[in-house]
Design a protein around this nucleic acid. Structure first.
Length: 219
DNA sequence: AATCGTTTCAACCGCCCTTGG
DNA sequence: GCCAAGGGCGGTTGAAACGAT
């Protein structure tokens, strides 16, 4: 059987139109079939991404408002790079958009603040810098709900405390150096931190977090 | 006006998880 | 329990837009 040639690169308006019409007629899901039957020479994943990030109804385009920006900063402090969770609190925004916005606008500002802070006090340890930034930039973080269960920690036969598990998480599940303190501060909040490269992992349930996260909803 | 460096963001890649057979 | 396929997610890339010289 001859393999279909998959087209890549930017989407043309005609392609957008075809995908939009197809999804509006047949519904979302089964993207491999969408890519075959719609006549688009795109992969299923590409179709899904284009729909989710660009063509879906109610997508909000344009710059972030100060309120949205503030919410992203605060959510990032609590959740780290969990863009889909953060985007879920911002109606009309996609995880890709939030991620891009953080990387291009907010992260830069964040890092320059950190540098300034280090320059102003060379003796200060990273953890202290982080704790300082946390209070400087996010003073109004609501406390996690009291009913939130403590994190379940899996470590084969040996259990670790939450703090140790945080510190041994695989690279991509940590925040930047110096931010671990904020992430790991006595929270007991439901987050998921798989640690495949190590023996320990902290497992949280996002569902339990929903009522708490609702306090962050931007309206 | 032309060139070059920088920034932005859409899209791709690869890994992981879930689901169904 | 095992495997394959589909889908979700975060990290990264590269083309286009923008700004500086």
């Amino acid at each position: 059987m001859k393999a279909r040639k998959i087209k890549k690169g930017l989407w043309k308006p005609e392609e957008d139109m075809i995908l939009k019409q197809y999804v509006e007629t047949h519904g979302e899901g089964n993207w491999a079939v969408v890519s075959q039957r719609s006549g688009l020479k795109r992969g299923g994943k590409s179709c899904r991404l284009r729909w989710k990030n660009y063509l879906r109804p109610n997508i909000k385009r344009g710059g972030m408002s100060p309120e949205e920006e503030d919410l992203i900063i605060r959510m990032h402090k609590l959740l780290g790079n969990r863009w889909s969770l953060i985007a879920g609190r911002l109606p009309g925004r996609t995880d890709n958009e939030v991620k891009n916005y953080w990387n291009t606008h907010l992260n830069k500002r964040h890092l320059s603040r950190k540098r300034n802070s280090i320059a102003s006090n060379g003796r200060r340890k990273d953890e202290n810098i982080c704790a300082t930034l946390a209070t400087e930039t996010a003073p109004e973080v609501p406390a996690p709900p009291p009913m939130t269960p403590p994190p379940v920690i899996h470590n084969g036969s040996n259990d670790l405390d939450a703090k140790e598990a945080m510190m041994t998480g695989r690279k991509e599940d940590r925040l930047e150096d110096g931010e671990r303190f904020v992430y790991g501060c006595d929270m007991g909040s439901p987050l998921s931190m798989p640690t495949s490269n190590y023996s320990a992992s902290v497992v949280f349930d996002d569902e339990l977090l929903v009522p708490w996260l609702d306090s962050f909803v931007f309206v």
